[in-house]
Design a protein around this nucleic acid. Structure first.
Lengths: 330, 330
DNA sequence: TTGTAGGCGTTATCAG
DNA sequence: CTGATAACGCCTACAA
């Protein structure tokens, strides 16, 4: 592998001059040309490890997410990558699998690899980003805030999303609306359930019957078992709000397996149904602009990397009622 | 940030000894304890950049894929990550978006970051992995082979998958079976179409009518427009083989929009339908063991990293006829 | 504008 | 078993 010295030797200049050319520092055009030619003929690539060691900062940023198989996060990832790449940073993706230990591991790697920044979609109740912050690294939380640290965050208006999903069912005439939300240590799940409860409190004089709120795993399997549980009740509800996209898929599977038509047993989903192969008409969806979530987080991160100081900024992005067909023409 | 020197000073030993303790080299138990305590109290983390610079090899491997939003690849990614992590390597994911330039960029990063290896799902017709190989880095191709370089590869039996999908339709009684495959510069697409053509040639005396093979984009949109095109023919086919999972989703969307029942207009999909919210009965699927694809590729990569020499090994994994419901209970 | 030299944090070599 | 020292490849004062 060619080093900066090899290039210098071939070009007949000092390594410092080569470095200057490569970093656009003032160098005489003659020598610049010499260096460029030499570099090309040796197919020289600067060693990023050495550069990072010296500069104390790499041009890589990490995006740490809890579930790479959830389209919510992959779409978000696209957003982050677009923004970061435009600013000259490469994004590497780290999948924590919802495991706080793995998350800690990746945060540690980001630190000790001298990465410029981290966009973190926290896996659990708390994440230790303090070492990163102490070293002056840029950190942005996305989807869920990071507790105990004043970092920028970009989140969905989850209460609003919960309200919207519930309202659409109420307006359609359903009067006993259950809610399958996520684990109660996840704030997004709590907030969406809160929105559901709020809206019902406003529109309905009656108290919510018991057993109407379920905390499921935020995955297909969680949605399935919760839905089964609801349908097996003595007096099942007549509609349900699915707390996220995967829960929605699971719930729809169960409805379909039991021969229940989504147009009769009401269902509204918070988050777009991924790769839906069927028409949207029957299933109202609160569209969550995941891509924007990502681009916004990416933009905040870049600003921090470029030196923005000050207290944490908190962006809340609203969802909007829309159709199911997200993976549609394109 | 604490360095190895700080730890050495606090423990009253030399940096070399600290390094030895941290790397499990023979050190007297007394000093080892001293070092460990000092390290803990300074919450010392070895600087990976420096370590990598010195060792010329990091403990990170890259997984380079063309479409992070395709569940085929995210599932594969899980497989690679599992295997690699077990062997002590961290996996970072690089999304090329099907863009050869981006792919080249990430390969370059892998090289100049001294990553231990790369699992590559090639984006296009050719990928330049030679610089990696020249430096002795481990490289494994997955999903598609890398042309012009003798690297290990793990691929699906695409011809077999094409045959299986076609056969199930033929056996169900369909006699005019079209095929929507992918771009003809992608070998997986070509092979699946080949399987389709092969099987029809064997079972049917008649020639295939014109316009029955379409090369679409391997995404939902591609499946949609191809399906529309087929249905708009003067004499449309009575069944179709969808060349991959996303094309299958697109084709099913169009069928549904036009009120065509998949049980009457036949469709078989190569690859599991992601997040299907409906019952599998109507849509036969050739299940592709993506996770195994990933774990196998990961295993080959680790072997190479650990020093395995010799010519490229080529693993072909068969698909199997199965049900749609992949995101089901669990 | 250019070159020399030192150091980023770690590990490997070589004495002791 | 342990310590001093050089080197990994690069960048950046400092000096010329």
């Amino acid at each position: 592998m060619a080093t900066i010295k090899d290039v210098a030797a071939l070009a007949g200049v000092s390594p410092a001059t080569v470095s200057r050319v490569l970093n656009n520092r003032p160098v005489s055009p003659t020598k610049a040309r010499l260096v460029l030619d030499a570099a090309r003929s040796l197919s020289y690539t600067p060693n990023r490890v050495a550069r990072t060691l010296r500069r104390q900062l790499s041009e890589v940023v990490a995006l740490v997410i809890p579930d790479i198989e959830n389209p919510f996060f992959t779409s978000l990832a696209r957003g982050v990558a677009d923004t970061a790449q435009e600013a000259g940073y490469s994004v590497v993706l780290c999948n924590t699998d919802g495991d706080v230990a793995k998350e800690a591991h990746f945060l540690d790697i980001a630190l000790s690899e001298n990465m410029a920044g981290v966009v973190l979609a926290p896996a659990g109740a708390s994440s230790d980003v303090q070492p990163l912050l102490n070293r002056g690294r840029a950190v942005v939380a996305v989807d869920r805030p990071v507790r105990g640290a004043d970092v920028d965050s970009v989140v969905i208006d989850n209460v609003g999303a919960g309200r919207a999903a519930t309202r659409v069912l109420w307006d359609a005439g359903y009067r006993d609306i259950a809610c399958i939300s996520g684990p109660d240590e996840i704030v997004t799940a709590v907030d969406r359930a809160l929105g559901w409860r709020q809206l019902l409190g406003e529109v309905s004089p009656r108290a919510i019957p018991p057993g109407r709120l379920l905390h499921a795993d935020f995955r297909v399997g969680g949605g399935r078992s919760a839905m089964q549980q609801l349908l097996d009740l003595e007096n099942p509800p007549d509609a349900v709000v699915a707390g996220n996209n995967l829960v929605g898929v699971g719930a729809l599977q169960v409805l379909h397996e039991r021969g229940l038509d989504p147009a009769r047993f009401g269902i509204a989903v918070i988050g777009d149904l991924p790769f839906s192969a069927h028409a949207p008409a029957d299933v109202p969806v609160v569209h969550l602009p995941t891509r924007s979530l990502g681009t916004t987080a990416g933009a905040l991160l870049i600003e921090r990397i470029e030196g923005h100081e000050g207290p944490g900024r908190h962006v809340v992005i609203p969802g909007e009622l829309g159709a199911t067909l997200t993976a549609a023409p394109g």
